[in-house]
């Protein structure tokens, strides 16, 4: 018993440390919103990173987003918009078509994803691919390659599978890092508090499966809260508070329902 307590305290300490660190880092990195065409740095001392472009001596923002400078590289982090796929990203998609040699998966990107039979992770009878994955199945897959014609997916890795049951929600893909948190801190809080199994796709699709619907809805609400207010300070604390409050009211409701039921029974008796 004492051991358990200690570990819990240790965990808390770790969390607070992590938060402090992230707060410090946030202070160091001054983040400002830039618009396309804005000069964000000049001189040859800087290198243009993602979302930027060099124009003579200046580095210019090529898209709308948050400007970030790390060492020499300047980049623009997107604030809004559709998911732009990157090789190695884990995404959640839905099978929308079955062809003779694979499945076509909608991953909510500018192009469709294609999962070949050789990449599906397991032996498949080629005569009928629908036995394996069929229309409307939700899959967790990894992006293997990006070609002009489409996006090649793979499922030959640990943790990549078909999702059964649960619910899928969609948030803006630019909010995904906040939902996951530093080293998974945010998502772990939601998982612990709601007892749900959650998988976050880089494309903004999130799969939630819990023991009961109430837990799933609570997790959904918490994620939507993060997606709605990604810039407020102390977000982790706010989410914790929110989850505690919701759970309390939920317990109260459940208790009240139970009580009412008991009263009715008493009356009957």
């Amino acid at each position: 018993m004492t051991e358990k307590k200690e570990t819990r305290e240790e965990k808390k300490e770790k969390e607070t440390k992590l938060e402090e660190r992230s707060a410090e880092e946030n202070k160091e990195k001054e983040r400002i919103v830039v618009v396309p065409g804005e000069v964000i740095a000049s001189g040859s001392g800087f290198l243009p990173g993602e979302g930027t472009r060099r124009e003579g001596q200046d580095i210019v923002a090529a898209r709308f987003g948050l400007f970030e400078k790390t060492d020499k590289i300047v980049k623009v982090i997107p604030l809004s918009g559709v998911y732009i796929p990157r090789v190695g990203n884990t995404v959640i998609g839905q099978v929308i078509d079955v062809t003779f040699n694979g499945w076509i998966v909608d991953i909510l990107a500018p192009h469709l994803g294609f999962l070949s039979v050789t990449e599906c992770g397991g032996y498949v009878n080629k005569k009928d691919l629908t036995e394996y994955y069929t229309f409307k199945d939700a899959l967790v897959a990894k992006i293997k390659a990006i070609k002009a014609r489409g996006i090649d997916l793979t499922m030959r890795e640990k943790g990549l599978r078909k999702l059964e049951g649960g619910m899928l929600i969609k948030i803006n893909p630019t909010r995904v890092p906040r939902v996951i948190g530093r080293e998974g801190s945010m998502i772990n809080i939601i998982k612990d508090e709601t007892g749900c199994n959650i998988i976050v796709g880089q494309n903004g699709v999130i799969w939630i499966k819990g023991r009961n619907v109430e837990g799933e809805i609570l997790a959904k609400k918490a994620i939507e809260l993060i997606a709605r207010k990604p810039f407020i300070e102390g977000l982790t604390e706010k989410v914790k508070e929110f989850l505690h409050k919701e759970r309390k009211s939920e317990n109260k409701e459940a208790y009240e329902v139970k009580e009412r039921g008991e009263r009715k029974e008493r009356k009957k008796n």
């Binding site: 396309p36 065409g37 090529a62 898209r63 709308f64």
Partner: peptide, 11 residues
């Protein structure tokens, strides 16, 4: 278009 994150040279 800028809000949608489309790469562009200017407004």
């Amino acid at each position: 278009l800028a809000h949608a994150g489309v790469p562009m040279t200017e407004l």
